[in-house]
């Protein structure tokens, strides 16, 4: 199957470039020329950008996953107050545009907190300021989305599981920890994967506050070399490669953790 597709695409590919006008216009040597930072070439410059992108994505994911799980559980808790708190969190962080949230975390919050804010602005190296603001912002924004998924994941299990757990003498927190969440997470692996993929791409908004991630660096490279197609093609490919790796990893995880009889289990 894939060999056929490959052959088909290869022929398409060759026919595109038969006189090779555009390909010849691509100048790959630009990646070996000095980057805006001087001491390293453009390829290394972009790869460092990718590393910063992934660092921010992973850190934000840790925030998003833990906060999102807690809020998701709150939304399914009994009573009125806890679900209401969860709902407020979700609506707040889901409905304010990501860029606005980032500007608030980076420009507004440090000005509103005199002691800590001044230390943050003056003592902390700039890149860690951007990283911290970016992590909190992307973490909470994604947490709001994950919370909704956790809530629906728990909802998908049915009320019987909670009732059975309580009847066995488990505390409510134990039922969540030992019964509901382990199964809910398994159901959620595919949607959490796409959430993580989104998160990786969303890190690009951090370029607006000067975070030196991949999108910012490819734009910077495009500007200094005037080789726009090369710079953005490279960035596109790097994002794609990372995302495909994440997809493959997530699929392996799904297979590894599958429970017979549940979604993702042997069919």
């Amino acid at each position: 199957m894939w060999t056929f597709a490959f052959a088909h695409h290869l022929s398409l590919f060759i026919s595109c470039f038969s006189p090779l006008p555009e390909l010849a216009a691509f100048d790959f040597s630009v990646f070996l020329r000095a980057s805006p930072e001087g001491s390293i070439n453009n390829l290394i410059y972009l790869l460092y950008g990718l590393a910063w992108t992934m660092l921010l994505a992973v850190a934000s994911w840790l925030v998003a996953f833990s906060v999102g799980s807690v809020v998701g559980v709150l939304r399914t808790a009994p009573g009125r107050i806890l679900p209401a708190i969860g709902a407020c969190f979700v609506e707040l962080f889901r409905n304010v545009p990501l860029l606005v949230q980032l500007f608030i975390w980076f420009f507004v919050i440090p000005d509103l907190t005199p002691g800590v804010g001044d230390w943050f602005k003056q003592q902390l190296p700039p890149v860690w300021q951007e990283f911290t603001s970016g992590t909190i912002c992307l973490g909470l924004f994604t947490a709001a989305r994950i919370a909704e998924q956790v809530r629906s994941g728990i909802g998908a299990l049915g009320r019987g599981q909670m009732a059975a757990g309580l009847a066995l003498g488990l505390k409510r927190t134990q039922v969540y920890r030992l019964v509901l969440l382990p199964v809910a997470y398994r159901i959620l692996i595919p949607t959490l994967t796409s959430e993580f993929l989104n998160l990786i791409k969303n890190t690009a908004v951090a370029s607006t506050i000067g975070y030196v991630e991949l999108a910012q660096r490819s734009a910077s490279m495009a500007d200094t070399t005037a080789r726009i197609y090369e710079a953005f093609t490279a960035a596109t490919l790097l994002y794609a490669i990372v995302n495909v790796l994440v997809m493959v990893g997530a699929r392996a995880l799904e297979k590894f953790t599958a429970l017979p009889g549940y979604v993702g289990g042997r069919r």
Binding site: W2, H9, C16, F17, P21, E22
Partner: peptide, 12 residues
């Protein structure tokens, strides 16, 4: 993957 890469090159 193959489909993706070839789409990238189609602008040619």
């Amino acid at each position: 993957l193959v489909g993706f890469i070839s789409t990238l090159l189609v602008p040619g």
